[in-house]
Nucleic acid binder design. Structure first.
Lengths: 340, 340
DNA sequence: TGCTTCAATGTGAACGTTACCATTCGGGGC
DNA sequence: GCCCCGAATGGTAACGTTCACATTGAAGCA
């Protein structure tokens, strides 16, 4: 093995460029105040040596790690993967790196995750797919670190800002569409109620159903998976079908479709089906799935922007929303609206 | 604002426990050599103050960051999300945190990403969904940092170890199954050829088809999305259908199914369809999708294990595989095998 | 008792950077 | 020609840890 080929430090760059390491630091941090020819000399030395700043030393001295912790449920990576990606690239652009912490949905994660996040030294934390089990950990972290949650209504812990898509509005759009297309009875195949999003969708469903005088029933809760939708739909087939089934997410809707097909039911003629999320495959289900599209990427960027404001102390641009509207995407799994 | 409520340091813990900071360090790093009563005193002080080690200082002194960089394609989070999750939790268990770096499939990512990874100070790097565009960046990183790639055959850059699922074997299993169920002509709807996995599946297809004397054709390449599968299948319907269509991944297979349904073709009677990945929704497509299941979670753990060996210099347990076998999952989108 | 020995703990220095203050140097105003 | 000023750069200290070594104290043994 090589005798520890130590990465070059500022001192190495400095001696190569014939300046002091302080000048190197200045070239990196406030290039404006160093004379152009010195600056280019230093920059050349930097590229020649392949120098990169030692992150640890920098963090130690500045007490800022340039790290953002991202706490997310493992299973959630399937759905809002776009949020994750958007956050990461926006963070990179702002000079931060993203520290990923996943948590199993059913982990007893309070102690461990909280400690992990705290110990990670992140400047701020983003909670991406929020469920009840995360709340204690998040609350603990929030006492010493800025936290922004991407969530329906949020881990209402003190110090936690929330950015989200209006899930209730999404549910309302679904119900209105179903009402307009002639549905009288609607069943909501609910998601796991320890997830904030699932709860918000359920509440939205109940309000909307009442508002429109529909016959609304809730079954479940399921666990976001196709199998849950499949099982719930089979139960419904046995016990009597409504005009429409509104699944808590696309995966459950896929399971619902499958069960209905097995029973040779026609969609949407016998039953209409609606999902939520507009995930990648939704458009190509059979029939293509009417669903609610969430602006996952915008959401990620928005959350990061908010966190950066918290971290760097500047104001949020006025008019920045904290809630984004979802968008109903009508496809073939529901009856067409009359286009008189 | 509070006047910078500095987090407690070892010195704070030490003075509270009435020992020197060195003793605190020892309690944390080699508890065995400090007297039990001192140890408990220190530990109590630690919990009372909510002390956590300053990661930056530790990294600075030890020249190890306890960070593992994970480079992945953004779109890949949809598929092998399990790999990501498995890696993260295994890493946490081993005392490492995961730094996430995503890259758009079509980014001109060479310079930027390479610099990012290098500058991140990660002790090692894991490349999760490998495509051609990553190679320069990965090669650059590999010169100064251990790199393990999770990939078919890999960015063959010097110093990059590879762990993967045997994609060719998967393709072979598919073709054998199709041959046994009476298919004579098979079309492969290929994936993007700058992805190593896609290329391996294509090659596996070609070998297997020749081996079994089938009439094999390749169409595409597609871009992993359902729409690509949909478009390719529509072309096929127009130009003449084979007995079976083998899509490069499940998403493309979903698009294929959709197109076939639109043309009122029966699956598998008129055309059989096979996917790859066994993603969450595959079982509940209509009909349920025959596909190749990849042990994503095992793969993630394996990759991390390899990287840790590289990092910490110990030997890989003998008999540890570097290639995992996939498993064909036969469902209803292909004809049943004769069970004589 | 006096010496060695070892276990337990303390002290000093260093990791690579940035904040702060000191120094140098050339030029403009009197 | 003197002083002062500001621009450019250099030097020193400190962030919180860990490593290597120094110190302490009690036990073991002649």
């Amino acid at each position: 093995m090589d005798p520890a080929p130590r990465r070059p430090s500022m001192a190495d760059v400095a001696s190569r460029a014939g300046v002091s390491y302080q000048t190197v630091s200045r070239v990196l941090n406030e290039p404006g105040i160093v004379r152009p020819d010195t600056r280019t000399r230093v920059q050349q030395a930097i590229t020649e040596l392949g120098y990169t700043r030692n992150r640890a030393a920098r963090a130690l001295k500045t007490t800022r790690s340039s790290l953002i912790g991202m706490l997310t449920d493992g299973s959630a990576l399937f759905g809002p993967a776009e949020t994750t990606t958007a956050i990461e690239s926006a963070a990179r652009e702002a000079g931060y790196s993203v520290l990923l912490t996943t948590v199993g949905a059913h982990d007893d994660c309070e102690r461990e995750i909280g400690a992990e996040l705290l110990g990670s030294g992140a400047d701020g934390v983003l909670v991406v797919a929020a469920h009840e089990g995360m709340v204690p950990a998040v609350a603990a972290v929030a006492r010493s670190t800025p936290v922004v949650a991407v969530s329906a209504q949020a881990p209402r812990a003190p110090g936690v800002e929330v950015v989200g898509v209006d899930q209730q509005l999404g549910a309302l759009q679904v119900i209105e569409h179903l009402a307009r297309t002639g549905a009288r009875s609607v069943v909501h195949a609910a998601g796991p109620q320890d997830w904030f999003d699932a709860r918000a969708r359920l509440e939205g469903f109940e309000h909307a159903v009442e508002l429109h005088g529909l016959d609304g029933t809730v079954v479940g809760p399921g666990d976001w998976t196709p199998r849950a939708g499949y099982d719930l739909a089979n139960d419904l087939v046995r016990e009597g079908l409504p005009d429409a089934i509104f699944a808590a997410n696309d995966m459950m809707a896929i399971g619902v479709l499958h069960a209905l097909h097995e029973h040779r039911l026609r969609i949407p003629e016998d039953v209409a089906v609606v999902g939520f999320d507009n995930t990648l495959g939704a458009e190509f289900q059979v029939p293509s799935l009417t669903t609610v599209s969430q602006p996952f990427a915008d959401l990620g960027r928005l959350a990061l922007q908010r966190l950066l404001c918290l971290l760097e102390g500047h104001e949020l641009p006025p008019g920045t929303p904290s809630t984004l509207p979802p968008r109903l995407v009508v496809r073939r799994s529901t009856r067409p609206e009359r286009t008189h």
